[in-house]
Design a protein around this nucleic acid. Structure first.
Lengths: 241, 241
DNA sequence: CGGCATATTGAGGAATATCAATCTTTGTGG
DNA sequence: CCACAAAGATTGATATTCCTCAATATGCCG
């Protein structure tokens, strides 16, 4: 059977100009090697709140987020929800899972992704050991991050949780080569609440507290300007970055 | 310079008889290959509460726990502590870390371990790709586990947290080929509290509640017999295993 | 401009932390 | 082997914190 020309393929060499080239999985490959990745890649885009994969779905694709933001979440039968993480451009979706997605992934804001069929990706990983090493390294980093969250959820007060959340977002923005000060908050308060194990009201009150104490400014609900980073770090119980 | 015969070396072939052979990293290797692992291995033992590695220490060894139990924890400047996990025989220490231990590891009860110098281990991983794959798979499992904990810490009530804790311990005991009921609790209540983000008093009251409701029996403080596994699973919001 | 979703603020109550006392277990030395 | 001290676990009384419910304010999109 004749194979139709694959849809949604980016123009050849597009990966080389990609915004996230230096921080995503593909950073493991040399310029003349990314081509192999590009060949198995399919572009996708999501609108805000669109679901990419549901908890329990078979893992047929893995993804690199190139723009926008995703949330990974799971819910209890009675509706209680926990967000285990937010993905920023350059982040990889599928690090934790073997054959099945263990979390639901949804777009917080309009998002663009590179989709890789897992079968093809598994093949590439065997050809390029550095790709495998990079994935393993990203998994380790995700694990450290999840363990940090255990401390945040288990032992920090609401204001401390929010302080640490803002600092982590700021630091990650910097790592992703974006301005680290006003911190952009594309997600609604309910998402922050479900990430920090709080209610929206408590999140809102914690924002107000940080503002009244002069640690941050809030030009609008989706922008937090860090005024006193040291005090914020003190609160969060972590070293300033 | 002449190299002295290495100390603490187990008799040749000991790995083949090892209790944890089938569940630890070494399960990735065939019987005739574990020899390579055994050659770089050094046996260690720890007494209860002895520290194996401190948060921030350079990662010079990785370990497989062969008996006993370890806790991984970190502390805030003011003394608040969070335990990110307990290690059971067959578990691997060092999955999350690159060059530095990000958590303190201590013995809950007397423990025995196989220690592998990271340099040697890095070398072996290159020779045996299956070893690398297995480590990556164990890291993914640890990540899923840490994300489950985020739900537990962020959204479950104390009794629900304890129920889920007992069920996880029970399931892991089974996976580790030990009886899954009664559940053995080698760690003190303070450890359970610092793992579940509660106080000792609340942990104690939660045990009492589960006992009074007929879901468990408590022959002694370190033994919990599961009486109604379904009700316990219901509480924990997870499928019975 | 109006209507809806989201965010903030307020009042009250429920749940868990805190403080304190008792009970139990463990380990040690006589 | 028993007595005793010390640590750990449980139970009780109280206080604080955060959640719940309700009202108001703000922003956003048609």
């Amino acid at each position: 059977m004749a194979q139709a020309a694959p849809l949604y393929r980016l123009p050849c060499g597009a990966c080389l100009d990609c915004d996230v080239r230096s921080m995503a999985v593909c950073a493991a490959l040399e310029d003349d090697e990314v081509d192999a990745l590009e060949r198995i890649m399919i572009s996708r885009s999501l609108e805000a709140n669109q679901v990419l994969a549901e908890e329990g779905d078979p893992k047929t694709y893995v993804y690199t987020l190139t723009s926008g933001m995703l949330r990974l979440c799971s819910s209890l039968p009675d509706g209680r929800r926990q967000i285990s993480g937010f993905l920023m451009p350059g982040d990889y979706l599928g690090l934790a899972d073997d054959d099945v997605h263990t979390r639901t992934s949804e777009a917080v804001a309009d998002a663009k992704l590179c989709a890789f069929p897992v079968r093809d990706m598994d093949g590439l990983v065997k050809v390029y050991p550095r790709l495998s090493e990079r994935l393993h390294g990203m998994t380790r980093a995700a694990l450290r991050h999840a363990q940090d969250n255990q401390m945040i959820l288990g032992r920090l007060t609401p204001v401390e949780r929010l302080a640490s959340f803002l600092l982590v977002l700021s630091r990650r923005a910097r790592e992703h080569k974006q301005p680290d000060n006003p911190v952009l908050l594309p997600m609604p308060r309910a998402d922050i609440a479900d990430y920090l194990g709080l209610t929206v009201e408590t999140v809102s009150r914690s924002f107000t507290k940080l503002r009244n104490d002069g640690l941050i400014r809030l030009p609008d609900a989706h922008t937090a300007e860090i005024v006193d980073r040291d005090a914020l770090s003190d609160l969060a119980g972590i070293e300033p970055h």
